[in-house]
């Protein structure tokens, strides 16, 4: 979801306040970056520069962390994030075929967003509900015991 100028401005102010409150704890960088990621849904160059400047460290350090951990994203995500579990329990029960179906239906690869900004696909390591394998989550809604034929109907629910 693209943010408006006003939203970005207010979120930036809020991030500045968060930084001020947390810059003196031990190991402040990760909690601050996690807060920014959650707030903006991605880390722009501007956000990373702001964090680096506030903490008095090189932007390269911030960038290095952003690219190391899977949780951080350098690009905005789609309105609906489709996370297809690729954990071991799901994999042995056919999760690869489910992911293939999602990719071919949306016409994008895992980690990409559709051109209209509606859907992103994420291959996730383990969503932790192995009893429902194979599993996929769309913005918090859990779908379990999937077969590729289920995908069409699920995606249509969000593509209204």
């Amino acid at each position: 979801m693209a943010l408006t100028k006003e939203q970005i401005a207010s979120k930036t102010e809020e991030l500045k306040a968060f930084i001020a409150a947390h810059k003196d704890i031990d190991g402040p960088l990760m909690p601050i970056m996690q807060h920014a990621q959650e707030s903006f849904s991605y880390l722009s160059m501007e956000t990373m520069t702001l964090i680096a400047d506030s903490l008095g460290i090189p932007v390269a350090d911030v960038y290095g962390i952003a690219t190391f951990y899977a949780q951080f994203s350098l690009k905005p995500k789609g309105d609906y994030v489709v996370s297809v579990c690729q954990g071991t329990a799901c994999y042995v029960k056919g999760a690869a075929a489910v992911l293939e179906e999602v990719k071919s239906r949306l016409g994008i690869e895992a980690g990409e967003t559709t051109p209209d900004g509606k859907f992103s696909i994420q291959d996730t390591r383990c969503l932790g509900c192995c009893g429902l394998a194979p599993v996929m989550v769309v913005n918090g809604d859990v779908y379990g015991r999937l077969v590729p034929a289920d995908i069409k109907g699920i995606l249509e629910k969000y593509d209204a």
Binding site: G27, P28, Q34, F68, Y69, A70, Q71, R125
Partner: peptide, 25 residues
């Protein structure tokens, strides 16, 4: 509490400590 950020290697104890300190794990 410190939250991980999705890196399997951080389950290794020295990587985990490095990560709490605010570095690449």
């Amino acid at each position: 509490l410190r939250l991980g950020a999705g890196a399997f290697v951080c389950g290794e104890e020295t990587a985990l400590l490095t990560s709490i300190e605010g570095n690449r794990g």
